[in-house]
Structure formats: structure tokens, C-alpha cells
Amino acid sequence: MKVRMVMATALAASCGTTLAQSTRPATMAERLAAGFNDRTQMVMVRDAATTTARRSDSVAGGPSARFQTRLGVSFSGTDSNYAYTGANSVQCTSDTNPFATANLDLPDGALIDWVDVFGQDHSTTDNLTLFLVSTCATTGSMSPPTFTVLGDVSSSGDAGNFFHTIVLNPPVSVDRFSCKYALRSRFTSSTTGPCVGFDMILDKVRVQYHLPE
């Protein structure tokens, strides 16, 4: 188990992160918070940014900025118990599973700078949390893939329309050879639901990245 953890740490460090950003094994609470219920899953956590990266405040985000958006309706439940209604924006209606995931399709070598979450929080009891997650595996390896929570943000304290950002400082480097990237949403403060329906709406998640020079 210790050898696997060392290998997982090395894989997470080289895959989707830079040398300046460290990862560590997730605690049980962190695993459950992100919807990783299987104890056999290898789950790491990227340390949160300690400084806020400077961001272009121009309308287009600067000439080098590129974007990929996932509407709320693009998120699929982590199991068949997830239920929702909506159109482009969605509200979770599940009694037992508040988790849903949307895959990203980013160019190899892209540097993910920010992940912006747009939604509506009308709940006085729950919050929506959004995670950026990578799944990495060495080609031909017999070991299970390693999940890394690269960042997360919550709608805590909001009333109505909200906008929050996962700051990735330094940026996350996309490695398409070994890794896949996804967004995971949790529609309630608890990890087991029930969802609060119309009181919590996910409009969209927008990933801002740039390509290296």
C-alpha cells in the first residue's frame, strides 16, 4: 500500500501539475466530499493556491485566453440514482445522489488557469460545490488509475445568482497521454442528498486555459 501511495504521488505530481505544486493523499472526508466512495480508489488532492493569480479583466480574457464550457445539462450522474430537470441549466431532484460529472476535452499541453462556476443558490441549508478532477494512469500499468482533486469551490453564503472561481496557481498542465479531466458537481452540502431541487441550480461551468508559447 505504501509503494502504491508513493507511485500515485509521483504520477499525480507529473500528470496535470507542475513541479511547484504539490499533491497529497486525500483524507476520508475529502474523498467523500468529492464523491469518491470506494476505499480502493487512489485519490490525491492538489494543494490550494496560496496566492490569487492575476487575471485579465478585459471582456475576452486577453488575446491568449481560450475557453471550454459545460452547461448544467451536460453533467451526468455518478450513478443512476442521480435525477435532474431543467434545460441548459439544471436542478438536482435526486433523493440519494447529489453528484454529477461532465468530461472535458482540452488540448494536450494546455494550461488551465481558472474554472468559473455560474449558478443560482436559493437554499439556506445547502451549497453547490464544483470540483476539477483528473484521472491518470500509466500506460500498461496494472495499478488502478489515480484521481486527483485539482481544485474546488463552493456557493457557500450566496443568495441568488452566484459566480465563483477555482484559481489554479500555478496552472494545471493538461497531459492527454496519461490523464483525463472532468468537472464534478455536488448539489448539496451533504454527500448523500437529498437534493433541494429548484433552490440549487447549476447554469454552466467555464474552463479558461491558454496554450504555452
Binding site: 441548459n88 455560474f118 459566480f163 447554469d203
Partner: peptide, 16 residues
């Protein structure tokens, strides 16, 4: 065919 827009760096109701 729809376009849905929100502010770049602020909260806002989706404009469909």
C-alpha cells in the same frame, strides 16, 4: 438553436 449568455466575471441570470 439557442445562445445563452452571462457576464464574463460576474453572476447574472442567463440571457437565453
Amino acid at each position: 438553436f439557442f445562445k445563452v449568455c452571462q457576464p464574463f466575471l460576474a453572476a447574472g441570470t442567463p440571457d437565453i
